[in-house]
Amino acid sequence: MDMDLFPLWISLKTASVATIIVFLLGVFLAWTFSRRNFLGKTVVEALFLLPMVLPPTVVGFGLLYLFGRNAFLGNILSEFFGIQIVFTWYAVVLAAIVVSFPLMFQSAKAAFQQYDSNLERVAYTMGASRIRVFWTISLPLAWPGLLAGLVLTFARALGEFGATLMVAGFVPGVTETIPLAIYFAVESGDMATAGIWVTIISMVGFVALLWLNWWNKRSMQRFHK
């Protein structure tokens, strides 16, 4: 059977780039939010988590509204940087980032709250800077939870469909991720191709969750031998 592997490549590329961006952003924001209090914190947090409860079409609509050709951010990016977002690969990445960010933020926040914050405080009393405390105390202690968030983010980014379709459309070879390939294969009655993609993406998701469970079990035993 002749089948191009573009969807696999685009999906993996998109999920990897989105995961890196979401991981860095999510960890930084979660650490800040779990250690500091400021006015309007709960409102900002609710906004961060909003994509998790909204239908993907609403997220897609929002992104179109912000990054469309005549939209505010879309205009700025195209005027000053010559970058067009909608109906390009950037839109695929953007959609994946927005829908997977809440998972990373929530996992990271839980990870930073699950150990005794006196461990950081005692490090400060010993003269350590914030950066040193983050690298030597916070990050290693939160690592199991952060890694869980990373896997969930990757899986979510890989499976993104609704928002991607709205903001990136279906451009074969450019924005054609596995979920989009499945949808359009079914639409055109090509059940065999759809079946193969379903098998591939299910296997990737299954392996990710299997690994996550194994890792969770292992990290539970880590400091409690």
């Binding site: 005794d116 006196n118 461990l119 405080r121 005692v122 400060y124 009393t125 003269g127 350590a128 105390i137």
Partner: peptide, 16 residues
């Protein structure tokens, strides 16, 4: 806090 040069033993010792 880093510049106060205080030794602080927490109740549960807070060993890393």
């Amino acid at each position: 806090i880093q510049r106060r040069k205080i030794g602080y033993l927490f109740q549960d010792y807070a060993l890393f």
